[in-house]
Amino acid sequence: MRFGVVRFPGSNCEQDVVIACRYLGFDVDYIWHGDTDLAGFDAVVLPGGFSYGDYIRTGAVARFSPVMGEVVRFAERGGPVLGICNGFQILTEAHMLPGAMLRNRGLKFICETVPLRVEESACQWTGVPAGTVLRIPINHNEGNYTCDPETLAAMEAAGQVVLRYCEPDGTRAPGGSAPNGAFDDIAGICNERGNVFGLMPHPERVVDPEANGTDGQTFFTRIVERLAGV
């Protein structure tokens, strides 16, 4: 079992993902965005950062990196793909996940630890029961997820909404609990098959109990268990 973490020009969270995987005892290595061979990797992570300076739109240029064609094929074969923050933005731009990202409501770059409710979903990366409230940091300027109501209804029906911003007790405020204004408080979604998962929060930053907590461990450990047939 080996994780591969793609390095785009402008990625800046790839080392955090590698450190998190190693902390959990998993084999991991970097993948250069110019590479087109994913042989030897069992799961691919698109990390956070500002790929290509966020020019045009976040993720808009990175999706055409040479490695992305192979990431699409890897996902089509059922390979697990995780997109964190800028990685999530790249997955939407690549149409591997529905919807798109807008600037945060209020135009503020938001950097804080927020409560997130785990929803009942088909996501292969989620290892905790629906209703669990996780505390994970967000760190972004464009996390205001949007899609049309028909797409949301289809995602709900297929179990594609994985994480929602919520209040500390797991409820959702009537006016919305998303600090960035995301539609229907959406913080993370997966594809129909559940192998491609994108989220704005940074689980790799909450893996070591001596640094912020352990609420992010579940995503990495669950996919390893799943690949091992557990």
Partner: peptide, 10 residues
């Protein structure tokens, strides 16, 4: 149409 425009609203 219908997409919220954060910079425009601000």
């Amino acid at each position: 149409k219908g997409i919220f425009d954060p910079p425009g609203a601000t």
